[in-house]
């Protein structure tokens, strides 16, 4: 009785074999690439990455090279983006900056949103002591002067330890989002599908990762998109004061800070770096928007 007769199922199975159920990741990817916005954003972001990491190979100039025959020259056949006061090639230095900014921006965004999602949803789901501890940490980090601490720590970020910088930056970006996530988790927790999963015997942490966080996807993706810009801009403002990414590394922020002084009479020192930043933020926003739509099954039919 529990098992229906086997022959009955043999038949059902035979016809059903070729109905493949796509996994969630594949469905989301499929939906993402079906929209023009998604394709455009992805293409832009991918080409930025390609340009930043492969572009330097095409140019004869390295970041450390200085052309003593060309100080502050506008773009030309020799120097595609012109040169700086020191004779440094703008093309080489912009791409180098773009490498760091892209990595810093994306990593910080993913890291901080990830921490926010996990901390917020655990706090909101379990409440009680978990909630109090996590929110106490978040409150503590909120009252600490992030900028000052990063500035003080900046000597530590030298000699290629920019990953530490990424971690520190992410550490100061997750708190507000985690509080929003916590609030939303508390309401999602009351939904029947969560209760259903609980009564099925699904462990709490799986419920959080399978039901709670995906249902916050829209919020989290918007947040991550904003965090990319926030991270790049924070890094920019830190670099402006000489903190942030430390020499010999450069970042778009540092270049924009330097270039802004000469932007009026030597626009190439400013606009290439600034343009790079704008395109980065734009493409991240495009990707984020279409990713959000792709995660939302209700939008599937309309897209």
């Amino acid at each position: 009785m529990m098992t229906l007769p086997e022959e009955e199922f043999a038949e059902v199975q035979a016809e059903a074999e070729h109905v493949r159920v796509p996994s969630r990741a594949r469905t989301v990817a499929g939906r993402f690439f079906r929209t023009r916005q998604g394709r455009l954003g992805f293409a832009l972001l991918a080409s930025l990455f390609l340009l930043a990491f492969l572009g330097p190979l095409a140019s004869p100039w390295a970041v450390t090279d200085m052309d003593f025959s060309a100080f502050m020259q506008p773009p030309s056949a020799g120097h595609w983006f012109g040169t700086l006061q020191t004779g440094t090639d703008v093309y080489a230095v912009t791409l180098r900056g773009a490498q760091k900014s892209l990595l810093v921006g994306l990593l910080v965004a993913v890291l901080s949103t990830g921490v926010a999602a996990v901390a917020g949803s655990f706090a909101g789901y379990f409440l009680g002591w978990t909630d109090r501890t996590i929110m106490w940490v978040a409150d503590l980090l909120l009252v600490l002067p992030a900028f000052l601490i990063l500035a003080i720590m900046s000597p530590l970020f030298t000699s290629g330890r920019w990953l530490l910088f990424v971690v520190m930056l992410a550490l100061f970006l997750w708190m507000v989002t985690s509080k929003i996530v916590r609030g939303m988790t508390r309401s999602i927790k009351e939904r029947e599908y969560i209760k259903a999963a609980r009564f099925m015997g699904v462990p709490s942490w799986i419920i959080i990762f399978r039901h709670v966080i995906p249902n916050l996807a829209s919020l989290l993706i918007v947040d991550a998109t904003l965090n990319v810009s926030a991270a790049i801009l924070t890094e920019t403002s830190l670099s402006y004061f000489g903190f942030g990414i430390q020499p010999p590394d450069v970042s778009l922020g540092g270049l924009i800070a330097d270039g802004s002084k000469t932007a009026l009479y030597a626009p190439w020192t400013f606009w290439f770096a600034a343009g790079g930043l704008i395109i980065t933020v734009l493409s991240v926003n495009l990707v984020g928007d279409s990713l959000r739509d792709a995660f939302d099954p209700g939008a599937g039919g309309r897209a």
Binding site: V21, P22, R24, R191, E192, Y193, R210, P214, F295, P297
Partner: peptide, 11 residues
Amino acid sequence: ASLDPRMTVHD
């Protein structure tokens, strides 16, 4: 309300 809107029926 009792079916997660972001999951397929299979899941």
